[in-house]
């Protein structure tokens, strides 16, 4: 897939919670196209639907109506197993709270997805070490998450998200738990990866640092897109 090809196509996407008087429209009839190689931030106040949109794009939740196609593949027709495989092969996740597997070391956390993909042990080892070196964690491969700082954990999470070279990386408030210096450093690193390797990044954020670096800002309010600006 080359830059500017359509990666995600969202049509009439809604996600409602509850019913009757307690109905909440977290997302309401969204239409959106994301292209390969974009570095996009979805911004908006709390409750605007940013995380819901990311969850739906990532196949972590099912829409009430509408459809999402990733690389032309409709996600809402997939079974649980197909969705798992799809996420494993095409989507990388970076979470606000890092969400590493606490009982695995940094190396094993990164290796885990490749293990699921059935990559050989030798390849896993080589790729894991290369990516950990790239995110600046050389020498810390055998530390468990609780032995790493917040910034180091998020670096492991970035390495884990990127190691299988997915088409799309979804980052939900990735800098929210980091100090500004570490946050800026990691954002620059992600931007660099985006520019060099053409990996598509989609952020949900409040953070001005992310907004500064994003080439496209999608503003959400009350579950609807009210502004979509490219820079």
């Amino acid at each position: 897939m080359t830059r500017n090809e359509t990666l995600i196509e969202i049509s009439n996407l809604s996600r409602h919670y509850g019913a009757g008087p307690t109905l909440v429209k977290a997302l309401d009839q969204i239409d959106l196209l994301i292209h390969q190689g974009e570095f996009t931030a979805i911004v908006g106040p709390s409750g605007s639907g940013k995380s819901t949109l990311l969850n739906l794009i990532g196949g972590l939740d099912a829409p009430t109506t509408g459809s999402i196609q990733l690389k032309g593949i409709p996600m809402n027709k997939m079974s649980g197993r197909e969705l798992s495989d799809f996420r494993r092969d095409h989507i990388g996740f970076i979470f606000q709270a890092y969400n590493l597997i606490p009982v695995l070391t940094a190396e094993e956390n990164v290796e885990y997805i490749m293990f699921l993909q059935g990559v050989s042990k030798k390849d896993r080892h080589e790729r894991t070490h290369a990516i950990l070196k790239r995110v600046g964690l050389e020498g810390r491969e055998h530390r468990r998450p609780d032995e790493l700082s917040g910034g180091q954990q998020q670096r492991v999470a970035i390495a884990r998200a990127m190691v299988s070279q997915p088409s799309l990386i979804l980052a939900d408030e990735p800098t929210a738990n980091l100090d500004s210096h570490t946050g800026a450093e990691l954002l620059d690193m992600m931007r660099d990866l985006n520019e060099r390797e053409g990996m598509t990044f989609l952020f949900s954020t409040h953070d001005p640092m992310v907004m500064e670096r994003a080439r496209r800002l999608i503003r959400l309010h009350d579950g609807r897109i009210f502004k979509d600006e490219r820079r």
């Binding site: 990532g58 972590l60 649980g80 197993r81 798992s84 495989d85 996420r87 494993r88 092969d89 996740f93 979470f95 969400n99 597997i101 885990y112 997805i113 699921l116 993909q117 884990r160």
Partner: peptide
């Protein structure tokens, strides 16, 4: 998280 990153059910 495990499911999100692609672990099958």
């Amino acid at each position: 998280v495990l499911k999100a990153i692609g672990t099958r059910p």
